[in-house]
Simulated scan of single mutants.
Amino acid sequence: MKKIWFLGLGLALLLVGCSDAGSEEGKKEESADTSSANTDAAGELMDFYLNLTTTINGTDIDLNGYEAAVGGEAPPTGDELAKLADSAAASAEESAKAVENTEVPSGLEDYKKDIEEFKSTLAESYNMKAEALKAEGEADLTEADEKMVEAENQIKAILDKAGLVSSSLVNDLNG
């Protein structure tokens, strides 16, 4: 009887050990799946960011040119300044449209709300620049630049949340 009891106890311990090992394997697989999903999302987020900045850099060329000319040693005046401001305003409007039309990839569902808020802030910055450039007199882009910094802080928070090194949106768009 004692032999059967020891055999039963040994079998019970063996089953408990196997069930724990299976549990550990399940945890390892789940952890690997989560890590893989995070890596995929981070990659998609970086692709989204790079595509967005590349698209904008294709549309805001005249705006950057205006800002560089006005900030230069011999800023333009008169008709030259007006011509630069008109093309910069059109460039800013195109940039705002490009931001608004950028789709958020389906793999970024966890970040979608934050990304949409970022896109809205960034588009608003470009729209503010366009309005300031169309106004009579010297264009004051201060508020629009502050809105751009707000968008930069938003994308930095999103990149940090994804475990990515944050980037300078202002430098990526103007550099």
Rank of each mutant, 00 (worst) to 15 (best):
A123N: 07
S125K: 07
S125Q: 09
P105G: 11
I115S: 01
E131S: 14
A130C: 12
A132H: 14
K112Y: 13
A132F: 03
E109Y: 12
P105H: 12
K129L: 10
E117H: 14
F118M: 00
S125I: 05
L108H: 09
I115R: 02
K129H: 07
L133D: 09
V104L: 07
S125W: 07
A123T: 05
E124A: 11
E109G: 11
Y126S: 06
E116H: 00
A123R: 07
K113R: 11
K129M: 10
Y111I: 04
I115N: 05
A132S: 06
E124G: 09
E124M: 08
E131M: 15
I115V: 13
E124K: 13
D114G: 01
L108T: 01
L108M: 06
N127E: 10
T121V: 10
F118S: 00
K119Y: 03
I115H: 10
N127H: 11
D110F: 09
S120A: 13
L108A: 07
I115L: 10
S120G: 04
A132T: 08
A123K: 04
V104Q: 01
D114W: 01
Y111F: 09
A130D: 10
N127Q: 12
I115Q: 07
K112H: 04
K112V: 04
N127A: 15
V104A: 03
L133A: 15
K112L: 03
K119N: 09
V104K: 02
E109N: 07
G107V: 10
Y111M: 10
L108W: 11
E117W: 08
S120M: 07
A130N: 04
T121M: 14
D110R: 03
P105W: 03
A123Y: 02
